[in-house]
Amino acid sequence: MYEQVKGLKELPADEPLSPGHRLCPGCGASIVVRQVLLAAPKDAIVANATGCLEVSTAIYPYSAWNRPWAHSAFENAAAVASGIDAGLKALSRRGEAREHPIIVFGGDGGTYDIGMQALSGALERGHRFLYVCYDNEAYMNTGIQRSGGTPRGAWTTTTQVGPAMAGKQGSKKDLLSIVVSHRVPYAATASISHWRDLMTKVRKALSKDGPTFLHVLAPCTRGWRYDPEKTIRMARLAVETRFFPLYEVEGGVYRVTFPVTSPKPVEEYLKPQGRYSHLFHPENASELETIRKEVDDNYARIEKLSQLTGQLYGQKTA
């Protein structure tokens, strides 16, 4: 069982990630971490993939983490979590009280790309952990290179804009479908702009016995090219334009957790971001049109999946 998060007042005053870390002002990833860990029990153990979050929060001899925290490499956070799970199980079986929630944080690079195999293996084996992909849609730590999570048309330092190419070619990998195909008990998308939704999803995920997954959009002021005070606004616009739909998949049943009935035009989300500025030049009009269509199709797909899986597996119990 889990409790829905209703108001700020019910959250613990304790700060899981201390101020003074070296993430950028307006960094979405740090907000993801705070929201996730404030929703989780205090005795959680954290595993972290290499990336911005990791290099900026634990520079010896300092650490911002008020939770037991482990970083090993870029591609192996899910495998490290598997080992933590196995270790805790073995020690509990030997009579030591070692049952703790395990929460993994990995960037889009560490999840969509180089960490995909380790993630897939860990999901399939059924370890008990919550994997949180904070998705800033590029390899930000190494200087804004594209990842499998970079959206169509976005500029990065490896998908540049010129007469021969206008940003990332091809669409963003559908991460949640990949995760869902492992038949995990719970997987969801979430946005830091919709914190009650995000935190409730964390609690729901942690109530399950087995691997669970949260895909959270984490706007990046440096990589997306917008002013740092606009991070939450960017996250909200992504939801309100249907660019990043909020939904969950529980026991195979899809459900949109924040229905967007009258979406804002997708330009409202794209325009304030420097990484998309070239899309508003006349020669790239067709690319913009493709993006619009992909956004509509994706939302329609999720709505349809909600209906179909609801019929197939029965109405879900919220």
Partner: peptide, 9 residues
């Protein structure tokens, strides 16, 4: 990698 996680417990 799993050995790392397990050993850390």
């Amino acid at each position: 990698s799993a050995c790392v996680g397990a050993s850390l417990t």
